[in-house]
Simulated assay, not measured.
Amino acid sequence: MKRHVEYTWRLRELMAARGMYNISDIIPHLEDRGVSLSSSQIYRLIGDTPERMNLALLGALLDALDCTFEQLCPMTVVAVPTRDRLSGTEAGAVNKGAIRPTRARIHRPE
């Protein structure tokens, strides 16, 4: 079994809980903490789930919203089942003693 980490991004919900409904509401809070982002960057940050983030930005968000990382980005680890059998060329590579078919030869009629 493989393990896969899933997470959700709750920045919009936490902003709304603190009375911040627009992009312009969070910009001064981030600038007070030394993080300056354009409005388009903040729009993407609020609307989409980020795959990577600067730790200074993450710290500024946590401080500005007065929340923990678990509240901002709850994570769950899910076990993903793996295949037990090999198929296709992988199975052939494992079983080297198997009989291989001979290549067909096509001749033109004369």
Rank of each mutant, 00 (worst) to 15 (best):
I106H: 13
S40K: 12
V94S: 04
L86G: 02
G92M: 14
Y43C: 00
P109A: 04
L86Y: 02
E51V: 10
Y7L: 10
E31C: 08
M75F: 04
A56D: 15
S38K: 09
A56C: 05
R18W: 03
Y43E: 00
G34C: 08
T49Y: 04
D48V: 06
A91Q: 13
F69M: 11
S38G: 15
R52Y: 09
Y21G: 11
P28W: 01
R85F: 11
A56H: 12
L57I: 05
A64N: 12
V77P: 12
R103P: 09
A79E: 05
M75K: 14
L11P: 07
R105D: 09
K96S: 13
D25S: 13
N54P: 03
A79C: 07
V94I: 04
E31Q: 15
I99H: 01
W9T: 07
L37R: 10
D66P: 00
R108T: 08
R33S: 04
G92R: 15
A17E: 15
M20A: 06
Y43A: 03
L30W: 02
L11D: 09
L11R: 11
S38I: 04
C67G: 06
M15S: 10
A93G: 11
A16L: 12
G88Y: 00
E90M: 07
S40M: 12
Q71G: 02
A79K: 10
C73Y: 03
L86S: 05
D66C: 01
M15V: 08
L30P: 05
L30H: 04
